[in-house]
Each structure stands twice: as C-alpha cells, then as structure tokens.
C-alpha cells in the first residue's frame, strides 16, 4: 500500500486519517499476527506480549485487540474488562517470575510518555533494588493549587458522586458527612 502524499493527507477526513493510522499501526499488526511477538496473555479483547525493549525481564505490554489510541476512547465496559486483564497479568508475573511486586503504568498522550499510537498498559515485574523507578518524589502541594483542582473537578465545595456513576451506576452520597468521610479515608493512608 503506497503512502498518501502530504496534499492527500491534508484533504483527509479524521475518519480516513484514523483508518490510515490503524493500517500503519505496528501493534495492530502484532494483534493480527502479521508481525511476530512473544505472547504471554490473551483473552477475547486483549493481548499481552513481552516488550522487546523492556524495563526488566517480564515487562508485558497489555493492549486492546481493537485499535484505540488513548484510554478515554475505551467504552466503560471494555475499561472494566481491561482492569481484570491487568490484574491477571500482574498475578502471572508474580506467579511465573516470582516478582515481589508489579507496576501498572498507562500513558495517555505524548507528554505523558506514550510511545506508540496504540493504547496499552505496561505491566512490569518489580523487585527490591531494581532500577525501574516509577516512584516520583512527593511534595507538599499548595493550598491554592489544591483548592483550584478541587473546585474545577467538583464545581463547588461539596463532594459529588464519583464519575463512574454518570454511566448509570449506583447512587452517590452527599458530602454532608464530610468530616466522617475524611476520617475514614485518612486512616487508609496511615
């Protein structure tokens, strides 16, 4: 298949560009079996292969078989299935490789470190003293910043229902018990 010229690209619709991207996508070819890969997990919707440029041995790339670029494009039900697949791959890393822990890392967008145009999670086995990192330093956040984020996300001082409810989930609670919520949750952080 010949590549379109710059002129042709400019005149393409978003759908046509997306289709072109899919046809050129290395990971779609891996899913289709056109490009060889080291498969370690597969179910109806997802494929897990070993990264050939791994952070360490056993680094798995878990991807949807369908071409998607970033997680917000994934429908809710598929996101749910993806969660379970991530957990299964993590379990396998611990069981098969005796990993002491795992990192599950998702990058949406170039500035977040996304390297491929096909959405995926990195599930990486972790052991004491390995050099993988993925543990940035923590810092005190300013009151001003915290207030700004809270206000932008909740559109007001009161906590609202969790975002997953908007798909028609169970009822959220009002935040009149604000202090009780904080107490219960701060315990979770030791």
């Amino acid at each position: 298949m010949s590549q379109p010229t710059e002129e042709e690209l400019k005149n393409m619709s978003p759908e046509q560009i997306a289709e072109l991207q899919k046809q050129n996508c290395l990971f779609c070819k891996i899913v289709a079996g056109e490009v060889p890969s080291k498969k370690v997990y597969e179910d109806e919707h997802f494929l897990g292969v070993l990264d050939i440029y791994p952070a360490n041995e056993g680094h798995v790339l878990l991807m949807p078989k369908k071409h998607l670029q970033v997680m917000p494009q994934m429908p809710g039900e598929l996101v749910g299935a993806f969660a379970v697949a991530c957990k299964k791959v993590s379990e396998k890393l611990i069981g098969a490789l005796q990993a002491q822990g795992t990192s599950v890392f998702i990058a949406n967008g170039l500035h977040a470190g996304q390297k491929a145009p096909h959405f995926m999670a990195h599930v990486i086995p972790r052991n004491d003293g390995d050099s993988v990192g993925l543990a940035p330093g923590m810092k005190e956040l300013s009151e001003k910043d915290l207030a700004e984020v809270k206000s932008k996300l909740t559109g007001g001082a009161n906590a609202k229902e969790t975002p997953s409810k908007k798909e028609g989930g169970k009822n959220g609670e009002k935040s009149n018990e604000g202090k009780a919520d904080l107490d219960a949750v701060s315990k979770l952080f030791g």
């Binding site: 991530c86 795992t102 599950v104 890392f105 949406n108 977040a112 543990a135 952080f189 030791g190």
Partner: peptide, 20 residues
C-alpha cells in the same frame, strides 16, 4: 493538561506509598 498517567504501585518494590 496535555496528557495523563495512570499508575498502580503494587507492592513496596514498586514504590507503593500507601499501606493499602
């Protein structure tokens, strides 16, 4: 923001800073 990350630090070797 122009991108987002989702990160699970599963276990102390992964940097898990919450007990839970």
């Amino acid at each position: 923001c122009t991108g987002t990350n989702m990160l699970v630090q599963n276990g102390a070797p992964a940097g898990q800073f919450n007990k839970l």
